[in-house]
Nucleic acid binder design. Sequence first.
DNA 1: CGTCTGGTTGATACGACTCAAATTTGGTGG
DNA 2: CCACCAAATTTGAGTCGTATCAACCAGACG
Lengths: 260, 260
Amino acid sequence: MTLPTAVAAGIFRFGSGSAVAAKLEAFTKLSADDRAALDQVTRNTRYIDPRRNLISEGDRPHFVHLVLDGWAARYKQLPDGKRQIVSLFVPGDFCDLNIYILKAMDHSIGAITRLKVAMITPDEMDALTANRPRITQALWWHELVTTAIQREWTLNIGQRTAYERIAHLLVELYKRLETVGKAKDGRCDFPLTQNDLADATGLTAVHVNRTLQELRRNGLIELDRKQLKILDIEQLIDVSMFNPNYLHLDHEGRHLDANA
Amino acid sequence: MTLPTAVAAGIFRFGSGSAVAAKLEAFTKLSADDRAALDQVTRNTRYIDPRRNLISEGDRPHFVHLVLDGWAARYKQLPDGKRQIVSLFVPGDFCDLNIYILKAMDHSIGAITRLKVAMITPDEMDALTANRPRITQALWWHELVTTAIQREWTLNIGQRTAYERIAHLLVELYKRLETVGKAKDGRCDFPLTQNDLADATGLTAVHVNRTLQELRRNGLIELDRKQLKILDIEQLIDVSMFNPNYLHLDHEGRHLDANA
DNA sequence: CGTCTGGTTGATACGACTCAAATTTGGTGG
DNA sequence: CCACCAAATTTGAGTCGTATCAACCAGACG
């Protein structure tokens, strides 16, 4: 069994299922009924071992996947062997709403840690959204945020230096984990290897290593045994030119209060 | 008047409005009624001069925009002045379906050429999709393809060399223009400056210049006066490791033939 | 205890950047 | 139609950030 102990015994243990609701509630309040419908849809679950694919390039997608626990990476590979992680999934993230419209996956999704995902059929998605405008809107918001993150990654890799780039990624992940209750007081599980980090930032593992050392030396972070501690978030935000606007956590739509 | 003559008098002149239908029909057949509904929605148009913003970061989005004619760029800017073009829009492209869900734009959209866009209100979008499952699906497909392109750009900038990167962009744009009838026989309008190209690929203008020269020297392209001619598409695809799968032009969904 | 994966270090190479200036192109106005 | 100007392209020389290659080390697992 190759389950990474550090993460399995990580400092954050929450009930699964709550992450999705927490994430969507960053956009809009949900009613008890909405939450029940969400729970309903996370019945059919599956576990994936670390470093195994949840779905592979070329596969025909049949389900929408929802990450209930663990981390996953969306990646693309080039014929010459180069690999780019184009997005990361943490608990509460859907992997491509409506993906089943497409004939074949243009990328793969692999597990970073041991992964618990819900498999949702198109029919279930329909049932989830039918007559639930709040959920529908929240899922749209989720989709828009996901692509906004993708754009920010393009900017990150295209324009920032290695140091800024890694700093930016750390801040983003910390913020995202925070909104689903998986990070607090500057600390979170951080299961990515330096190799993963390299593939996600378009750098080499060697350079990631040196850059992390620089971040440590400058007193910005501690990172050891898959545990990240952010020591100076202000400065990390500053040097990485992190602008949270693309996460759209401004709680717009909260006027749609379910209990009003 | 700063309208670039080369492009205004470009070799491709088609009726506007047809580009959208052409694009969506890459996914599914549309009925006469579907087309009429699309036309209906492109009534409210606006022209934007080159180098002016259609919408700016921080603005609250009120409309979905649809490019009827000309090219536009979605870009993000860093406090230190660096700029990244994160996507390009050509005729037939929607700029963010459902964007009005969000409170503020996290990026800007600027005109490359003189631009003709349709401004579509949320109500009109609803009217367009209500009881039109084919259109609804086609719009979803459009959205999925747009984010697939965004992922490919992340890969492009993260893993490919300058030479491969520019080659890849040229092929992508050529293919996209081709599906909306704006490119043929290896030729198309190509209004991007080397500076734009630099901002889109994460390179400097000087290096783009030298790389373009290399592509010309190797007999792959001609590029002059905003006119691109691809001399050897095979080799261009090969060196850039271009895999068309992410454009999802495999015509899946054509079984939903409107005239069946 | 040996193996393996992930992390660390050092030396060297190169792709892309920077800065600066020249040249060409397209548009403007006399 | 020509002179002028700004924008875009091109060229050259020198530098730097990141890659490459090759060991070596540490902790976790079996």
